[in-house]
Design a protein around this nucleic acid. Structure first.
Lengths: 211, 211
DNA sequence: GTCTATAGAAAGATAGAC
DNA sequence: GTCTATCTTTCTATAGAC
């Protein structure tokens, strides 16, 4: 405890990011002032500029961290073997990851408009990389005759929109558990890409049912 | 031509709304100033207040008009007979309606945060009424054994998220026609609610399944 | 590292001339 | 109906004391 009072760089920095994330998600980037963020952190507005060169960079860093975390988490996830198992892994991963970070997800989808051109391009590249992961699964599944997908790009965007939509209505402690939500969305996702129809056809003989 | 110069109430009013809609959609409500709207219209900032009491009302009126137009258009649409036909009508209607109004749709989804409490409640009620239309179709379809939907509320939100997602990537003159997009999304929607599986099962002769 | 103070720009909204 | 002018507030960002 030999430190000078008022010296809290390692703790204040993350607090600034946390406060910005919370406020940007609730009120929107453009509607949040640096003063409001400072108030949330418990410092004066001027002190924020020790941790970010400006407001824009604060937003960009939040979005970049989120997207990189998303890609890293997916890279580290269990991914099963055949396309059907990989699709299930993706759906469950996507929902779980997104439900755990509602604020970051909200910002990543709503504040693209407020990024300057260069920052926007970098975030879009990361998003594209994530979409490509799903599209590869759908393409492999189609090639294997497991999925009925006329356009893998469209199906990718449709599935991601559907899955991410969970964040718009999910509330902690609601009537459905996350596990249950995952399973319901998984069935819908499989149906959307014709996986159940494919399976039903494949198993035509002895009358078996999925899940 | 006996009018006084500078008298353009009937033309300027709609122009203000059109300019606000365009700018709110591109930059976001909070990031657009009244001066910027005035510039787009070609008048001075003060003149805007002849057409709206304040900026908030401008936003609210845009969103209210959009939602009311949506409900009215659906009420007037052809809706087919059985739940399968009604679902197809809904999907095609939703995509067509939304693709024709990208700016209004964008605002309706992105600017809810910027509505004052009372205005927010009114818009949410209109949105709920629209969701209820789809949920009724799904509930009827399930009751008739046509759809496999464990939770109609969830399926409603999932479908709407998926369908509205078209607006995030569709661009005029892209590689797919609207008709083609409608058809692809329709197939995915039917698959998601188990309509195709139901059909396949029904045609599979002896194999019947519970639920 | 945080504070107070402030520069400089821009915001929403209004008053009154024409 | 539109303009100019302005009131009042708030904003981002910086300077300099402690």
């Amino acid at each position: 405890m030999a430190r000078k009072t008022g010296s809290h760089a390692e703790i204040t920095g993350p607090k600034v990011r946390a406060a910005a994330q919370k406020l940007f998600a609730r009120m929107g980037y453009a509607a949040v002032s640096m003063r409001r963020i400072a108030e949330e952190v418990g410092v004066q507005a001027g002190a924020l500029y020790l941790y970010t060169p400006d407001k824009q960079t604060l937003l960009y860093d939040l979005m970049k961290s989120h997207m990189e975390e998303l890609l890293a988490a997916w890279a580290a996830a269990e991914k099963g073997g055949d396309p059907l198992a990989r699709l299930e892994a993706f759906v469950r991963f996507h929902i779980r990851f997104h439900l755990e970070r509602p604020d970051a997800v909200f910002i990543a989808y709503m504040e693209l408009r407020n990024l300057e051109a260069e920052n926007f391009a970098r975030i879009e590249a990361l998003r594209k990389a994530y979409e490509d992961e799903l599209e590869a699964i759908l393409a492999d599944g189609r090639a294997a005759g497991l999925f009925d997908v006329p356009d893998t790009k469209l199906a990718t965007l449709a599935l991601i929109a559907m899955l991410t939509g969970v964040n718009t209505w999910y509330r902690e402690g609601g009537r459905l558990s996350r596990e249950r939500i995952e399973s319901i969305y998984l069935d819908m996702a499989l149906g959307a890409v014709g996986a159940e129809a494919g399976r039903a056809r494949a198993m035509a003989a002895p009358c078996r049912e999925a899940e």
